[in-house]
Design a protein around this nucleic acid. Structure first.
Lengths: 189, 189
DNA sequence: GTCTATAAAGGGATAGAC
DNA sequence: GTCTATCCCTTTATAGAC
């Protein structure tokens, strides 16, 4: 994909608006204003509004995937550490310059069929990393249950933080991640 | 609130469409068609589109609250049983012909400030039931951690099921609830 | 309580000049 | 690459007849 610095910057601004207003309520005029251009000029950079959403979601998922892979490379082999590191990385992509990953999670259904088909591979790759880490914890007998169910419950708990967690409050995202891991892995206390 | 049987039925139909399409993409024409009337007639029943959303969300939250209270009344005093029962009840309101609760969770931010202020008390009452049940489990030493964090993680995991769980699949909502409880309460296996 | 007709506003997108 | 101007369509909501 074309990822000129300019386009990346525009995508970043779009992500911010999509989080604030939601995709459907964000107009091309609002996007253009945020980018400091007129609405007509926007279509020089993107074919249509859908393409902006796809660009944001691709960016958000690539970023989450990249950070997760880096995290796993750098982690110790301890399944407990790896799980904690993945949870921290997930919240980091949600709350530290958060916007694109949030859009990827909460505006997924607004994608047209074509983009969804293309991007679902990326999302699957991200989820696969999680299932691997959960698997390691299962094999080490640190947790119990179905690998897919556990993965989805954990990701659900993490994703839902977007609805209630205030990152400017007293608790850090890392604290949050650690508390979640402790919840499903009580012997780690 | 005016809750004639007719209005309740229209609200139910609206909830279904809001789940399928999202509030923003559901037009008054779609709503009217689903209700078997013309779009102009819709405004005899509701002041505007916002009021339809507020009605759906009120219905959904009242329903969840009602079922949760009933569940707790009928439950044994065992903290483990009560937690499991609450999780089952939550998924029941999400997946058993009860679109309104899904709308309440996922379209909350589309409410105008006035409705949000009014309805947030209802939502708080529902969450308070959860915090109580979590508290009982904490006191019984069945789980550990911060009462609010644990409540929100559990609710997040449950709410997120809407994104991936297929109720027509082999697993029942009750199975799901039990698996989640087992995840945070391993000694219950 | 429902209809038809339509007002008023705002939406995405395009054309062509610069 | 950006502008102005504008097309064309859909949206929510209203008015008044039945």
């Amino acid at each position: 994909m074309n990822a000129s610095p300019r386009r990346k910057e525009l995508t970043r601004l779009a992500a911010q608006l999509f989080v604030q207003e939601g995709f459907d309520r964000t107009t091309v005029r609002m996007l253009a204003q945020e980018m400091g251009i007129k609405s007509g000029s926007l279509f020089h950079h993107f074919k249509d509004k859908q393409e902006i959403l796809a660009a944001v979601i691709e960016e958000g998922t690539q970023n989450a995937l990249h950070i997760a892979r880096q995290t796993l490379e750098r982690s110790t082999p301890s399944p407990e550490d790896r799980l904690r590191a993945m949870a921290r990385a997930h919240l980091e992509t949600l709350f530290t310059d958060r916007n694109a990953h949030v859009v990827a999670l909460f505006e997924w259904r607004r994608l047209d069929a074509e983009s969804r088909a293309h991007l679902s591979h990326l999302r699957d790759a991200y989820e696969a990393l999680w299932v691997d880490v959960i698997d390691e914890a299962l094999e080490a007998d640190l947790i119990h249950g179905d690998r897919f169910l556990v993965s989805r419950f954990v990701l659900g708990a993490l994703n839902w933080t977007v609805r209630w967690y205030d990152p400017s409050g007293p608790r850090s995202p890392d604290d949050l991640a650690d508390e979640l891991v402790a919840m499903i892995m009580p012997q780690s206390r």
